[in-house]
Simulated scan of single mutants.
Amino acid sequence: MEKIKPELRIFESSEELSSNLADYVLQVAESAVKERGSFSLVLSGGDIPIRLGKLSKEPYVRLVEWSKWHVFWAEENVVPKRHPDSYYWQAMQWFISKVPLLPAHVNPVSPGLSGESAANSYEFAIRQQLKSRTVQVSRSTDCPRFDLILLSLGPGGHVASLYPNHPVLEEESQWVACVSKDESCESVTLTLPVINAATNVTIVASGLDTARPFMDTMVGRKPIRSHPAQMVLPRDGNLVWFADASAASLFLRANEPYATSATDS
């Protein structure tokens, strides 16, 4: 199928972005539950766990059918479960522990394993979710087809743990891979085929430190492997960017006619 053009939503403040992101997550969740009876949400690091804290407050916490939600991770650092750098632990503190999600529906990467073992174990766990039909299967790729994957744009232009010019960007067979950014840090990440098989993908860009990678990703002037966010293009799904004014500052300056319509929408 033809790739769908990304949608760009720009907000005046980070707070406004968070509120609109919560609205969007709720909208996608309601649609998935109505269509299939469940909703699969994939989280990542960055500020995603903090922003999802909005869903633990009124009116969201009252409107959500929490028993229908199933939570996964797009990336995880290979650290103990309660380590400050654990994205699972961050999500627990800011979001999961504050809402009535069913514990059996929370699917973290197994702690206490080596990077490769953790990646293999998590891919096996996802395959089990496909067998139980908690997660759909993409008809075009046989990859899992998550309802919504939330990603955060990093200062280096990366999303999930897909770093610039890393060999994992070429991975086609594995669903989950172990990535070493440097000798001191290993992480587990969903690969691009899985991300691009999702029904909906959202990338959040916030803060001045993402202004340059956001600009470069939007205009596509850099080699694509140097900006992995450019490689997120769902095959037959929706891609929506949520950016605050700081992250979009360079882009808006270079696209003034667009700036007015984007921020007024």
Rank of each mutant, 00 (worst) to 15 (best):
K57F: 05
L130V: 15
S117D: 14
K181H: 11
L130F: 15
E75K: 05
S249F: 07
S121M: 11
G157L: 10
M231P: 00
L252Q: 01
A197E: 04
W73V: 10
L233N: 10
R221Q: 13
T191C: 12
L252G: 02
R139L: 15
V194P: 10
V109G: 00
V33Q: 10
L150N: 07
V204C: 11
D264G: 02
L162N: 04
F11S: 04
C143H: 13
I10E: 13
D182F: 14
N20G: 03
L17N: 01
I50H: 00
A243G: 08
K54Y: 10
Q129R: 14
V64A: 11
F95M: 13
A74P: 15
H70T: 13
V159E: 02
V179I: 03
Y163N: 00
A254F: 03
L52I: 01
F124D: 15
S265V: 13
C178W: 10
T202E: 03
R221H: 15
E171D: 11
S140T: 13
N238E: 03
A29D: 09
A177R: 01
H158E: 04
P49H: 00
P164S: 05
P144K: 09
K34H: 05
N200D: 08
G112K: 00
A262F: 12
T202H: 00
L17M: 04
L102S: 07
S110H: 09
P193I: 03
L41I: 12
A160D: 07
R133C: 11
Y87N: 02
W175Q: 01
P108M: 07
G37V: 05
H70S: 12
P80M: 05
P234M: 04
D182T: 10
V42F: 06
V64C: 09
A74L: 01
S97G: 06
C178G: 01
D47W: 01
A22T: 00
